[in-house]
Design a protein around this nucleic acid. Structure first.
Lengths: 253, 253
DNA sequence: CCCGCCAAATTTGTCTGACAACTTAGAATG
DNA sequence: CATTCTAAGTTGTCAGACAAATTTGGCGGG
């Protein structure tokens, strides 16, 4: 029993901490793939923890794609953190001051992807794709009637658009982004969103995207998706004018 | 000692298998966040393995963001696989027949993102951003002279472009994608790539992207990035005409 | 001197048992 | 009925043992 364990904060498990420290170390050293990590025995001594804790931390890094292990040989760097999988959480602590900018950055990533995806969907959508979008829209329409929640249906509409590109990587990326941005849809579909007309306006934008995709007009689809994302960002209090090609901004040169 | 362990294939560790099976089960059941998983004891009985194996498998799922644990309470679903982090590997086995299509899908994802990022970079780049791009290009120029490898410098150029958007999410996404696509750059920068002129042509395309960004022309930057990606895909034997808004394709309606 | 073989040492993978730390459920009390 | 307390259950960590795989070093032969 480690005497310090009783003072451990609840969210800070030893295995979590060791995994995080190892990841930071690998990133700081910029180890090339194939570099061998210290043995479990050495890591136990270095961190002052049991072998089980080290093994669980290594398991986490294996899941991240950063580390591979070979029985009898050791653990080896496979990729730097951030290279094997993509997460939205930025490195370092997230503070209250950084949140609006982070959300704006994420919306910008969404803007790039979803305007392009709408274009491709207009070129490639099938009847089944359209039915899937229409079904999500019907559920949103009913939610507007009843003043109920349609966050999941809103997300499903966007995933259906991405699926209509017939590119599973895009569809999966949209599912990932949609899940990460679930909370951003709440102000549209809660009671005050219904009363302020935000839900109704979002649905109109969805209908314009749908119409452009259904008629197979890629340019209109891109423009409809762009307009929707601009409006969605505005509804959240973000400033989307930075994404648009308007007047040229000052250059620091 | 489990009698079946001797017959285990080398790449299939028990903890890997259990983690994979749990992930598939969570996805198949579409568990909502908050749903409690069976206890470790139950999972040990169900899978016929020791508690250490279960714990390591759960550690993997925790790293993936799919599961959270509370000491004394249990393990709970936090997100479906694919919702908490994004990876390029598709679910299910990757066969030889799927590989070219998968690469094409990934290039398309890259196309959507990098054309938009080039546009934003032209609007926002600083002198330091341009110096970083120029440095990567100088290293590629020298590699062309000497007939040596510049895969990493090629990657660095694209990361520098994404960094010039001043959106860290984009820069990190580009770093992720660049790492995943390292192998796709090898045919450009190996001996036969040099001799066939592929490296020289890629560098010309980089120069056009750089020039458009340096002069702050977002439309030209988008077009230069698009042309580069089309040529890069063609160099790999992919068909990039599907990405472009040309004649409308047949609709299944 | 070089190469191949073999045994010993090392390292990861799995199992088991024990105890600590935390949570939950049920019973008892006011 | 609400609150408190206790016991049972569950995860977190430690330690030891053995299995499976890899690496290293020594020895012998060509």
């Amino acid at each position: 029993m480690s005497g310090g364990a009783g003072k451990r904060l609840r969210s800070a498990r030893l295995s979590d901490e060791v995994a995080e420290k190892l990841a930071h170390w690998i990133l700081a050293e910029k180890f090339a793939p194939g570099v061998q990590l210290p043995t479990e025995k050495t890591l136990c001594e270095r961190f002052g923890v049991s072998r089980a804790v080290i093994r669980e931390a290594i398991s986490r890094l294996k899941a991240d794609g950063c580390v591979t292990t070979r029985q009898g040989a050791g653990a080896f760097v496979a990729a730097l953190p951030g290279e094997a999988s993509f997460r939205l959480a930025a490195p370092g602590p997230v503070t209250v001051e950084t949140l609006p900018r982070e959300l704006s950055d994420v919306f910008e990533l969404r803007y790039l992807m979803e305007t392009g995806a709408a274009e491709l969907a207009a070129m490639r959508r099938t009847a089944a794709d359209l039915a899937r979008m229409a079904s999500a829209m019907e559920r949103m329409r009913r939610a507007i009637e009843l003043g109920t929640d349609a966050v999941a249906d809103d997300d499903e509409f966007h995933v259906a658009v991405a699926a209509a590109t017939q590119n599973p990587q895009l569809a999966r990326f949209q599912a990932f982004m949609g899940h990460q941005l679930t909370d951003s849809r709440v102000p549209t579909w809660n009671q005050t969103g219904h009363q302020a007309g935000r839900a109704r306006r979002a649905q109109q934008e969805h209908e314009e995207i749908y119409h452009a995709i259904a008629t197979g007009d890629p340019v209109a689809a891109r423009n409809a998706a762009a307009a929707h994302l601009v409006e969605a960002a505005t509804r959240l209090g973000l400033d989307p004018t930075r994404w648009r090609v308007t007047d040229q901004e000052e250059k620091g040169e």
